[in-house]
Design a protein around this nucleic acid. Sequence first.
RNA 1: GGAGAGGUGGCAGAGUGGUCGAAUGCGCCGCACUCGAAAUGCGGUUUACGGGCAACCGUAACGUGGGUUCGAAUCCCACCCUCUCCGCCA
Length: 425
Amino acid sequence: MHDIKSIRENPAAFDAGLARRGLEPAAQTLIDIDSELRSVATEMQASLARRNEASKAIGQAMAQKDAAKADALKAEVAALKEGLPALETRERDLSAALNDRLLAIPNLPFEDVPEGADEADNVEQARWGEPRTLDFEPRDHADFGPALGLDFEAAAAMSGARFAALRGQMARLHRALAQFMLDTQTGTNGYEEVNPPLLVRDEALVGTGQLPKFAEDLFRTTDGRWLIPTAEVSLTNLVREAIQAQGDLPIRFTALTPCFRSEAGSAGRDTRGFIRQHQFEKVELVAICAPDQSEAEHAHMLASAEGILQALNLPYRRVLLCTGDMGFGARKTFDLEVWLPSQNTYREISSISNCGDFQARRMNARYRPEGEKGTRFLHTLNGSGLAVGRTLVAVLENGQQADGSVVVPDVLRPYMGGIEVLTPR
RNA sequence: GGAGAGGUGGCAGAGUGGUCGAAUGCGCCGCACUCGAAAUGCGGUUUACGGGCAACCGUAACGUGGGUUCGAAUCCCACCCUCUCCGCCA
């Protein structure tokens, strides 16, 4: 959500930001609506002021039992009120029109975000780890996974495509990964563990930016709620319509939750394997902070996510997304991409975004700066720390051996109940 | 699912059609008294938007949205939320 005041003050900068996203200028239209809205509002307020004044006089006349004077005033106000309903309707329509447009405009990219049209223009910033050299042809997890307890067929029979059931040692490994991530984020990175709602109302999704534009990506319940596509929604909305004390910032939340996505726009992509499912688990990181803290929080979140990949000894690279590849609410995003030997490439496993005050405005989340009167909007950040399902794929593929078994990473051993190798059955 | 009660400022809580953005108490800020503190006294203390160089003025907000009325915290309707009892339930 953009501030109409700042658009009014600097329309050229606003349109320049949109242009960097490849979007048409919008400032003039918004300013026209806004200026008409303000003139209608001013006119309406003047009418209301006169009405209020006369109504007060009626009250006084009646208190003095001056019925004639009261009746005369009533007639006067009745005439005055002729034009009010039209003004009120106009004001409401203009206000809604302005709001609808503002809600549909994405966040503007931060100044140091590289310009580009799509993922081809993203900038690789760093690589960590060396892909293993194998003395055999690396296999796809969808091929050797089923023998280890990754069951696509049974899940498809009950739920359809893009579902899987994990059994035995595979389910254990998945749980171990999730526990390890959560323990690390809470224990060493300073995030507060949250167990949040998975079903939310419209307003929550408007707050984080999935609505009103991206309803087709979501699952809706019969009573009008939505399944969260990411815990970013639940965690960020913990501060909606609230005012934080500056001393409490930054606030860091983490949660392990299922995520539900319709994948409406990705028919045919990643249909094989565990990479793209309708339901998956993710350890999410969210930071709520003051504007001058958000760059540092972004770096901290990045390090918190990278630490998991490093501890698991998974080769990855860090990419700075270009303007054309960023999500709706982000003003700057880093992706972490993990090495998948079967695809001979890096695949996204975490996306870490600074949203500035974009989401905070949409959900009216503020803080009170010390020594200042009034409030200011918070900054919000979110990132995966990490996507558990994709991490499982990476562990399987990077740890695979010629005989179809998989070596469990050292840091997961305490969570594995003695299992050191996943063995085919 | 059935029955009932209720949502008012940072908090507690009064207010059932008019001069109520809202009594009172607590909290908070300032001042006085004091060597200092406590206690006490006095004054102040919501937010958003619009207009104005400014002092300031106006509008809106008593859960949310509609409605009745010259006028709504107060009356009517819908929705949201909280609490109590009964039923069911991991």
